[in-house]
């Protein structure tokens, strides 16, 4: 042991540069949670490697089908079950990270008293909270962004094709772009807040699990409400085979209505009569001229993802602000 009695210089300034040298509060937070952080980083690397492997499998199949000019029936032997399985695992990530990283982040310190230990050193409580949240958020963003990019890259060849998971499925929508990052951040920071309020690690993990699942369910319900609804209409009546309007190939259909001469939409359950003539009479009487179909076009996907992610990130920021304001006064 050296006879170091003076104050070590602040982060990075001391001695020869040895790569990334953490100092001060950053060192403490990393040291305290390094097992969780390294686990997360390792799992991310494994996930990215797995996705990369699966993508080479996909591409070699597509190559046999003449990619990028695919022959007819190219998708007869297309197997995208790996994509569904991995997306399911990725879908669990927000809950798992929230429960195992978010919930104990403050709850454990409050439960074991180490919050007192840290807060009776010379650095301020806000500094402690900001560093804890900051490093956790940074690691979470790094990992989820990497996985999101990898998954998007895997799906990209299928993006404009009619087979494989479509853009509006949870498989694709929730695992690409900013969505997984925002969902995870929201669950993790929510878990931190829950842990701060409950002050018990195990209870915080259980409650955070419920919070994460509820978030996923709410998201699944609201996901497709994020788009700007488009309408396609036809004026060839409603009975002929070709009377239905043509939608863009990958559109997400929401609902369909009868279109009347006055431009109103009425439910297509109307005029469900016994005989064709009665039906026709009914349709005539209501002046039904064709179909109106509401849908979301695939081109809306990035906008919807960013809108949803934006809402989640705003909520996350509000939670983080709450943690700082509450914790500044009441922690320990």
């Amino acid at each position: 042991m050296s006879t170091l009695t003076s104050v070590p210089a602040p982060t990075g300034a001391a001695g020869p540069a040895r790569g990334l040298r953490l100092g001060g509060m950053n060192w403490l937070v990393w040291r305290q949670h390094r097992a969780a952080f390294w686990t997360l980083l390792a799992a991310t690397v494994a996930g990215v490697l797995l996705i990369a492997y699966e993508r080479t499998q996909l591409m070699s199949y597509l190559d046999t089908q003449g990619w990028p000019h695919l022959k007819d029936g190219w998708d007869q032997h297309l197997d995208t079950s790996a994509m569904d399985r991995i997306s399911l695992a990725l879908g669990l990530a927000p809950v798992v990270i929230g429960v195992f990283l978010g919930a104990p982040l403050l709850a454990n310190d409050l439960e074991t008293g180490t919050a007192k230990l840290v807060n009776t050193q010379s650095s301020s409580r806000v500094r402690w909270l900001v560093t804890k949240l900051g490093i956790t958020v940074a690691v979470t963003v790094l990992c989820t962004t990497a996985l999101s990019l990898a998954f998007g890259w895997w799906w990209a060849p299928l993006k404009h094709l009619t087979s494989g998971p479509s853009w509006d499925s949870s498989t694709v929508f929730d695992n690409t772009g900013p969505v997984p990052v925002a969902l995870t951040l929201f669950t993790v920071v929510g878990g931190v807040a829950i842990g701060m309020l409950l002050r018990r690690t195990l209870m915080a993990m259980v409650v955070t699990f419920g919070f994460g699942v509820a978030t996923q369910i709410a998201w699944a319900y609201e996901r497709m409400s994020l788009g700007h609804i488009q309408v396609a209409t036809s004026h060839n009546g409603v009975l002929a085979d070709n009377s239905f309007p043509v939608l863009p190939g990958s559109a997400h259909m929401i609902d369909q209505f009868y279109l009347t001469a006055s431009g109103d939409y009425i439910g297509y359950g109307n005029c469900h009569e016994m005989t064709a003539s009665a039906t026709n009479a009914c349709l005539d009487q209501k002046h039904v001229v064709g179909w109106a179909v509401t849908y979301l076009n695939q081109s809306q996907m990035p906008g919807m993802q960013w809108l949803g992610a934006g809402i989640l990130l705003a909520l996350t920021a509000a939670l983080a602000a709450f943690i700082l304001l509450w914790g500044r006064k009441r922690l320990v």
Partner: peptide, 29 residues
């Protein structure tokens, strides 16, 4: 504090480093 909280997974050396990292007037010796 009464319960003398310390990080159980830290080594003694790391615990002292905690003091060094967080306190400007730290006296390691």
């Amino acid at each position: 504090a009464q319960e003398k909280p310390l990080f159980r997974r830290f080594t003694v050396e790391e615990t002292l480093r905690l003091g060094r990292e967080l306190n400007p007037g730290w006296d390691q010796r």
